[in-house]
Simulated scan of single mutants.
Amino acid sequence: MATGDAITVTMIDDHPVVLAGAEHWYSTADPPIKVVASGAGVETAWTPPGDTAAVVVLDLQLGGRPPAYDELRRLVEAGRQVVVYTMRDDERTALTCMDLGAFTFLTKAEGEEHLIAATAAAAHDRPYTPPALAGAFGADTAPDRPKLSLREEEVLIEWFQCESKELVAQRLGITPRTVSSYLDRVRVKYANVGREARTKANLVARAIQDGLIDVGDL
């Protein structure tokens, strides 16, 4: 896992040149990001040392098979932070990955800067929305929107813009426990309409889709 400045990654991609290139990018990051395991199959993330990494970087298209949505779902359900990193750049694929609980969605065309930034954000559970995903959100109609109270929206937006629940509590004049209660209610409401949001990053994605906040406000 991420400890202090040390971020660990498991990379899953069936193109050796992609694995080698990404590992080089990570090694030159500041601070460096360590690839603890890499391979062409999702089993890399389930076996040592890949099962200990803070972040899983997953290519959707492995071995010419259909998109690895089932594998993505399993990783998310196990509590892993997954950055989808793929040649696919269509909006439907991006939104499907986010609906399944991916931390974020990157196209390989977005390159070194966004891969490093997204990986660091995932390790520390800080929201990150790269350009392709922002475009997909802008095109999404998201019909199943939960009905949030004004106070729930206020707490949610403050949390996106603060480092901690304690700071949200100070700004709104409530207790950290009350902040947690509001956020739990929001998560339940999203789950009830079939749009689960387990992490802060997932909640940010939902809020952008639903027009509660703009990418530029983060």
Rank of each mutant, 00 (worst) to 15 (best):
A78N: 13
D89F: 07
E91P: 09
L75S: 05
D30P: 00
K34S: 10
E91S: 15
W46M: 10
P31K: 02
I33A: 01
E43A: 14
R65H: 11
G50P: 03
R73C: 06
L95T: 13
L75T: 08
Q81K: 15
A94E: 14
R80W: 06
V55M: 11
D70W: 00
P32K: 07
W46K: 05
A53N: 04
A94L: 13
P67I: 10
D30F: 00
R80H: 12
T44F: 05
P66M: 03
T93K: 05
Q81W: 02
P31Q: 10
R65Q: 14
P32T: 12
V55L: 09
S38A: 13
A94D: 14
D99K: 15
R92P: 07
T86V: 02
A78H: 12
G79Y: 04
V36Q: 02
L60G: 09
W46V: 00
D90S: 10
R92L: 13
R88G: 09
R88S: 10
D59N: 05
P67M: 08
V76P: 07
D70V: 09
P66I: 02
A54F: 07
T44L: 06
T93D: 14
A94Q: 13
G64V: 13
E71Q: 15
L75E: 09
R73P: 04
T86Q: 03
E71P: 07
V82W: 01
K34V: 12
G50N: 04
V82G: 02
P67H: 08
P49C: 11
E91Y: 11
R74P: 00
T44H: 09
L72R: 02
A94P: 14
V57H: 03
Y69T: 07
R80A: 11
A53Y: 01
P67R: 01
A68W: 01
P31L: 12
G64N: 10
A53G: 12
V76M: 03
G39L: 01
P32W: 07
V76L: 13
C97L: 10
V55T: 11
L95P: 11
D59R: 05
Q61V: 05
D30S: 11
V36K: 02
D99G: 15
T52L: 13
E71C: 04
L58H: 02
D70T: 10
V83E: 02
L95I: 15
D89N: 11
D89Q: 13
G50A: 04
